[in-house]
Measured scan of single mutants.
Amino acid sequence: EDPKKEILLAMLMVDKEKKGYVMASDLRSKLTSLGEKLTHKEVDDLFREADIEPNGKVKYDEFIHKITL
């Protein structure tokens, strides 16, 4: 499956209130437990690539855009 789609799906599952962003810690939890599970190192690399703080907010569109360039 398309990794971009899988990450967006994980974000939507976490963002039940439809705020347009999720906490990095919640996204990490989903990405390491769903679908093609990522390792913590892979998530760290994704966050670093997208300039996301480990305890920060992750906005869908910015995150998807940064990791798919």
Score class of each variant (00 low, 15 high):
57 K>T: 12
57 K>A: 11
67 I>R: 08
15 D>N: 07
47 F>P: 03
28 R>K: 10
62 E>F: 00
52 I>F: 03
37 K>R: 08
43 V>T: 03
60 Y>S: 03
41 K>E: 13
6 E>F: 02
16 K>Y: 03
16 K>T: 06
55 N>G: 07
4 K>H: 11
67 I>E: 12
17 E>T: 07
20 G>P: 08
51 D>F: 03
7 I>N: 14
1 E>S: 10
29 S>D: 14
11 M>P: 08
43 V>I: 11
10 A>G: 11
65 H>I: 00
12 L>S: 14
43 V>Y: 00
19 K>W: 01
48 R>I: 06
46 L>Q: 03
56 G>N: 03
47 F>S: 02
39 T>M: 01
62 E>A: 04
33 S>D: 11
20 G>W: 00
27 L>C: 00
68 T>R: 14
14 V>C: 12
23 M>E: 14
33 S>K: 10
23 M>D: 15
45 D>W: 02
42 E>M: 04
10 A>M: 03
56 G>W: 00
68 T>A: 14
35 G>V: 10
21 Y>G: 04
55 N>P: 01
52 I>C: 04
47 F>V: 05
34 L>W: 13
17 E>D: 15
52 I>G: 02
60 Y>E: 05
46 L>V: 08
39 T>R: 01
67 I>M: 14
40 H>N: 14
26 D>K: 03
9 L>D: 14
25 S>H: 10
53 E>C: 11
37 K>G: 14
11 M>W: 02
41 K>T: 09
35 G>R: 11
9 L>I: 06
52 I>R: 03
23 M>P: 11
29 S>I: 09
12 L>W: 04
3 P>R: 15
44 D>R: 00
10 A>V: 00
34 L>P: 07
23 M>W: 12
28 R>P: 00
41 K>G: 08
49 E>A: 09
14 V>P: 11
11 M>I: 05
5 K>F: 12
2 D>C: 01
18 K>F: 03
62 E>W: 00
18 K>Q: 10
24 A>R: 02
27 L>E: 01
66 K>M: 09
52 I>D: 03
47 F>H: 00
12 L>I: 03
51 D>Y: 03
64 I>K: 08
46 L>S: 03
59 K>P: 10
26 D>W: 01
1 E>F: 04
24 A>T: 08
45 D>L: 03
67 I>N: 13
59 K>R: 08
13 M>I: 06
6 E>A: 13
60 Y>V: 13
21 Y>E: 14
19 K>Q: 13
29 S>G: 08
23 M>G: 10
20 G>K: 09
54 P>A: 08
14 V>Y: 06
63 F>H: 04
37 K>S: 11
25 S>T: 08
20 G>R: 04
47 F>M: 15
8 L>C: 10
32 T>Y: 03
32 T>N: 08
1 E>A: 06
24 A>N: 07
39 T>Q: 04
49 E>I: 07
36 E>R: 13
28 R>L: 01
18 K>Y: 04
21 Y>M: 11
21 Y>F: 09
54 P>W: 02
35 G>S: 12
35 G>E: 08
16 K>C: 09
69 L>W: 13
52 I>L: 05
62 E>N: 00
63 F>A: 10
68 T>W: 09
12 L>M: 13
2 D>G: 08
10 A>I: 00
20 G>S: 09
64 I>V: 08
3 P>D: 00
49 E>K: 06
19 K>F: 03
26 D>C: 01
60 Y>K: 02
53 E>V: 04
59 K>M: 10
29 S>P: 02
11 M>D: 14
56 G>V: 02
52 I>E: 03
51 D>M: 09
63 F>T: 04
17 E>H: 10
5 K>N: 04
59 K>Q: 06
43 V>H: 00
5 K>M: 11
67 I>P: 13
37 K>T: 11
41 K>V: 12
23 M>T: 13
53 E>T: 09
33 S>R: 08
66 K>Y: 10
40 H>D: 10
56 G>P: 00
37 K>D: 09
57 K>N: 10
26 D>Y: 05
58 V>S: 02
16 K>N: 08
18 K>N: 11
25 S>A: 12
44 D>E: 06
57 K>C: 11
11 M>H: 08
29 S>A: 15
10 A>L: 03
33 S>M: 06
60 Y>M: 12
67 I>L: 15
41 K>L: 07
16 K>L: 09
43 V>L: 08
48 R>K: 07
14 V>G: 14
63 F>N: 02
22 V>W: 01
69 L>R: 15
48 R>F: 02
41 K>C: 03
34 L>I: 04
69 L>H: 15
52 I>T: 06
60 Y>C: 07
20 G>Q: 06
48 R>M: 11
52 I>K: 03
35 G>H: 09
63 F>M: 06
8 L>D: 10
51 D>N: 11
34 L>E: 12
40 H>L: 08
45 D>K: 07
24 A>F: 07
22 V>P: 01
1 E>V: 11
44 D>Y: 03
43 V>R: 05
21 Y>R: 08
58 V>A: 05
27 L>A: 03
29 S>K: 13
39 T>S: 12
18 K>A: 10
33 S>Q: 13
69 L>S: 14
37 K>E: 10
38 L>Y: 06
21 Y>T: 11
14 V>L: 15
16 K>S: 08
22 V>S: 02
66 K>T: 05
18 K>S: 10
2 D>T: 14
9 L>Y: 10
21 Y>W: 13
9 L>S: 15
57 K>H: 12
46 L>Y: 05
61 D>T: 09
28 R>Q: 03
40 H>M: 08
